[in-house]
Nucleic acid binder design. Sequence first.
DNA 1: AATTGACCATATGGACAATTTGGTCATTTG
DNA 2: CAAATGACCAAATTGTCCATATGGTCAATT
Lengths: 190, 190
Amino acid sequence: MASDRKRQIIEAAAQSFAAFGYKATTMEQIAKLANVGKGTIYTFFKSKEELLDEIVSGLIVEIKAEAELAMDPSLPFFENVHRALYRILEFRQRHQLTAKLLQEVRNIGTAAVQEVLAKLDRAMVEFIRQKIDAAVEKGEIRPCNSEITAFLMLKTYIALIVDWEKDHEPLTKEQIAELFALYFLQGLSK
Amino acid sequence: MASDRKRQIIEAAAQSFAAFGYKATTMEQIAKLANVGKGTIYTFFKSKEELLDEIVSGLIVEIKAEAELAMDPSLPFFENVHRALYRILEFRQRHQLTAKLLQEVRNIGTAAVQEVLAKLDRAMVEFIRQKIDAAVEKGEIRPCNSEITAFLMLKTYIALIVDWEKDHEPLTKEQIAELFALYFLQGLSK
DNA sequence: AATTGACCATATGGACAATTTGGTCATTTG
DNA sequence: CAAATGACCAAATTGTCCATATGGTCAATT
């Protein structure tokens, strides 16, 4: 089946990207791992970049699903956004593929990887933005520029989880939730 | 006079670092520009790194002074912090030396420059932290972890001024002040 | 005592060859 | 005949010298 071969290729590529990074993975490696000829890859993907892009698109869906799962409709908006953001950042750092891609950008700054991670971040901002819009609609929070707010929320979580650890002891999940509430909640809630 | 020679060297080095970057500047260049022998530099500075470090230390003093100047004791705390942070970020981006060093870190990631810019950021956080502590003392704002708060404020300004422009139209100074007030002020004020 | 530039070990960069790699396509295969 | 393939190619990357440049030292000089 054709779509089965495509899945094999995506699986093999994702596995190799996660283990060796994007640049260090060759199309021949992927072909071998997927048990297909190298040419076959190019019947499904225009280029190596497009293959990476499709993998990351799948990752975005996966992360959104994880974030959605972390939320609970019966809880207040801010608790849910906290859970979603924390889960997203957790995924970003712990998942082999994203962790490797982040490392690759830091260490060698591969352009294609930079692009794809920027896309991932934009998707996360958009995800949060929709939650904010819904909450505004429901009157749970004060109206605001939802895109800037979502953008700042993600930046804040990256700062608290990734950047803060460079010079200090890591903050616990609870501390982060408190800080998030202190700044954003009390700044937004009616 | 000895301190005069030292000043000459610092001046020459700062000028050359700003024009060509840290890595692309040679000690011989600096010596020529300062009208001293290369050996003389090493009677004042242990190494090229230490020379850079001392220049940046001076820069920190200069930026703090600028930030202080931007503030006005008769204005409310948050307006002053906004002015200080905005001025700091403005300096960081417009001043030749800092701009060149930031570019160098982005493009080639020179380790010594990375260190020195991290030190600059830490100094700015510390500067803001003291302002926050003073405001807490005076009862102008609610007590909080001043270091984390200062850290997040700086990160927020960098996000709004530097990162936001990568994908969007720049925000005006007034818009940034409003956003800052929306999140931080209303989250902190009694 | 302060200053200096010749000097040294090492790092850097350029030139060139060898190898690797992303991508193509004529051929094969089921 | 449509899908799959791997030999093949141009371009990029890597490896290897070697010449040069550079950070730092120190004996000679001022």
